[in-house]
Design a binder for these strands. Structure first.
Lengths: 194, 194, 194, 194
DNA sequence: GATGAATGAGAGTTCATTCAT
DNA sequence: TATGAATGAACTCTCATTCAT
């Protein structure tokens, strides 16, 4: 990669970070190209040098965050520890990202309203891949006789669903700390998985 | 109520139904007044005869569905049956609505991006009221020694969150029927509540 | 005139009065058919039974007021008194109407923006006729050697212009009473006319 | 000021000129953004690049003209000449502007129907400041014993009112030339002020 | 590489006007 | 006579996108 390319790649990342920020603030549909550019003290025209159009930018933004999340999850799965521990850490990590990247994460939930056919496929694929790690942790736990579940996929759905829901109501000023939530959630889920 | 008023009320309902439909198809932000009107073979101008503006229309739409849902839930809570049964039926009912009214239901999740301050308050209030019925069922179950939970509110959060999540992935052509899902979910949750 | 016709004529007058009111409140361009009708507890559709369209209604409204004003002015001109007295009373009367019917009176000033060709002609004609009475009073005064003016039409212009201007700044809560204003104005004008 | 900025400033001025023109033709309320843009062979969207909204554009338009007028008036007041001369020149100048910028000038008369609270205050303030210059000329004249008036403010009102009225009836094809009008007016007013 | 400027399509909203009942 | 309901045209404003410089 040449210097020029590296520079461009860095700029792209800056833009994506700026986009994430604006999206968090205003929501997806209300994040204008103008806003995103202003955050970086650029003009919106410049964004088109780095991204073909708004969809591409948004897609990259979503991809960046999902990829990072995936890496963390993979690492957790590959750790040498009990399935219960892995599940606990996976939930904790997922919660963390879901809260921090609230809006961007929501994209994963409803991609149809923003993305066109080509992207949707990729998004769903990646989303399934991400969810698949939870499946693998559960499967491993079942194999190791740590967990006892009637339907693995369904169990994963419940865990992910409940966890995703947290970002709807979580507030840093709320009654429960993130750590507390993580603990309670893990407890309930383990009751379910045993 | 005079014939005239009944007619007008009916028309309003027609519009709300049309709006629900368009929203389901295109999503909230992409549902234009034009689309909603076209669905009823009206012109968009006519909508303003019945609703002050788009926000009012959308709010009514959301209110109609949430109110209906609330009624059903209240009825379930007042039944004479075991808490476990009530919970099962509540989950089933919630699942039903969440799937059928997918988009409109999503409004309850993120009202800030569409509604102005006055409406948001009401929405959140109603939403909490709705969730409160689950709380009451759980509390009753605990009192009757049917359930044993460490934190009631958290348990409700998990149940609602997981159930809301279903609409993201559920498809009538999918592997699991609605009934099957309901059963499996109920089983898992009961494990959690015991 | 049959009973029916008399009834209709009365209704028309009611409408015009209502229109005057609404116009005073909101200004010409912001007076909607809806507003005018609402004032009379009618629906706007009904207005079209009495008036062909908005322009016709507005024109009638203006005509009613101008005609009444004209009558009063004519009467003043025909009185048996000094020209100075007549002028004083004319100014007083004009001031009175201009303040009370502020908005409607303004129509006389700028008819082009509201009325189409046919009406404009009539309006200007009537307006000139109205102004003509001032001319006649001045002319009479000159003939009687009460006044001494270089250019009669110009003198009238100044008097009418200055008087019309009063409605821009006059307020019932202001420093000067209507009577006081009338006196001061008359004094200044007489200085001019002598 | 950079070249860019100068260009932008020029464009803004062009737009204001175009706006003035359209307003003169169609009146304030009937001047659409489309019209204003068309006059400059732009699209209406481009106007929003330079002005936040229609009100802002209209306000700037009015401000530009009033500010220019004010400057001229100030200069007249500061001249070294008799009060009578100053008054003559002030009237002449005012007449000039009132006729040329007819419509824009009319805004000063009725700002309430177009502008929102914040602007109205500024407009009225500037309007009073403008009128204040006439007051100062009169006051000076009284002090120098050139004028003899019972009520200074009222005298100014009459002068301004009468002069404003000219634009209602003045026509370049009319019987009186602007110069002739100015002379006659000045004569009459001086009779009043002596 | 980036900017300023412009475009154009489309959104929500208002309102005079019409017409069946 | 009057109403409720609907139409359609016009208007303000927004924003992704383009492009000469």
């Amino acid at each position: 990669m040449s210097l020029r390319e590296r520079k461009a790649a860095k700029k792209k990342e800056d833009i994506l970070r700026s986009a994430s920020l604006v999206i968090s603030r205003n929501g997806y549909q209300n994040a204008t190209m103008e806003d995103i550019a202003a955050e970086l003290l650029m003009t919106k025209g410049a964004l088109y040098y780095y991204f073909k159009n708004k969809e591409e930018l948004l897609y990259s933004c979503h991809d960046l965050i999902l990829s990072a999340a995936m890496e963390k999850m993979e690492a957790i799965y590959l750790e040498e520890s009990s399935s219960m521990d892995k599940m606990k850490r996976a939930i904790k990590t997922h919660l963390d990202i879901a809260i921090r990247e609230k809006e961007v994460f929501n994209l994963i939930v409803k991609p149809e309203q923003l993305f066109s056919a080509e992207h949707i496929e990729e998004i769903i694929q990646k989303r399934d891949q991400y969810a698949g790690i939870f499946d693998k942790i559960i499967a491993e736990g079942v194999k190791r006789r740590e967990f006892k579940v009637s339907d693995k996929k369904m169990a994963r759905m419940i865990i992910l669903g409940a966890t995703n829901w947290v970002q709807v109501w979580y507030s840093p000023e709320g009654k429960f700390s993130k750590e507390k939530i993580e603990d309670i959630y893990a407890d309930y889920f383990l009751k379910m998985l045993l």
